[in-house]
Structure formats: structure tokens, C-alpha cells
């Protein structure tokens, strides 16, 4: 039995594997819980966000700094909103 899947989403899922647990957990949680409700432009912003190094992501995702690019800042807000479980 094979479930339907989206290779693009799976590619992003692997890109969410990071060097720091904090970043891992926040990105994975969001991919499972909030990603599908993003529009196409926001999805593309999420993919751009993943290109940033872990030490930058951790500062953004923990709310200690904010990206100057509003597209990224919005996605970061969405990830932070989805983070509690």
C-alpha cells in the first residue's frame, strides 16, 4: 500500500532536517501542521527560509530576532504560531 505523496513536499521535509534540535522541531511541526494552509507565494518563502544557516534560523524562530524581509518574517510568525503542541 502506498499513500499519495508530493515529492516537492518530501524534499522540503528532508531540508527541514537541521543541525539543531530546536530548529528541527519547529520546522517539522510546521510542515505537518501549518504548511498546507500557506498560499503558493508563502510556500516559496518557506523554501527560501530553509536556505538560511541554522544559527540564523534559531534566532528568528525563537523570536530573538526578526528577518528584515517581510515575506520571511510572515512565514516565521506562522511557524511560531504552530509551534505549541
Amino acid at each position: 500500500m502506498t499513500e499519495p505523496r508530493d515529492p516537492q513536499l518530501e524534499r522540503l521535509r528532508w531540508q527541514c532536517r537541521r543541525g539543531m534540535l530546536e530548529v528541527d522541531l519547529l520546522l517539522k511541526r510546521f510542515l505537518d501542521a501549518g504548511f498546507s494552509s500557506l498560499d503558493q507565494a508563502q510556500k516559496s518563502a518557506f523554501a527560501d527560509l530553509l536556505e538560511y544557516p541554522d544559527h540564523v534560523l534559531v534566532e528568528w524562530l525563537m523570536g530573538r530576532q526578526r528577518p528584515s524581509d517581510e515575506r520571511l518574517a510572515h512565514v516565521v510568525d506562522c511557524i511560531r504560531d504552530a509551534s505549541a503542541s
Binding site: 528532508w14 543541525g19 534540535l21 544557516p53 541554522d54 544559527h55
Partner: peptide, 12 residues
């Protein structure tokens, strides 16, 4: 490397 090299756990 199974992830991009600079995403290895040494960064933590």
C-alpha cells in the same frame, strides 16, 4: 552526508 554539510550537529 545525509544533510547539507553545514547542517551537521557540530553547529549546535
Amino acid at each position: 552526508s545525509k544533510v547539507f554539510p553545514t547542517r551537521s550537529h557540530t553547529v549546535a
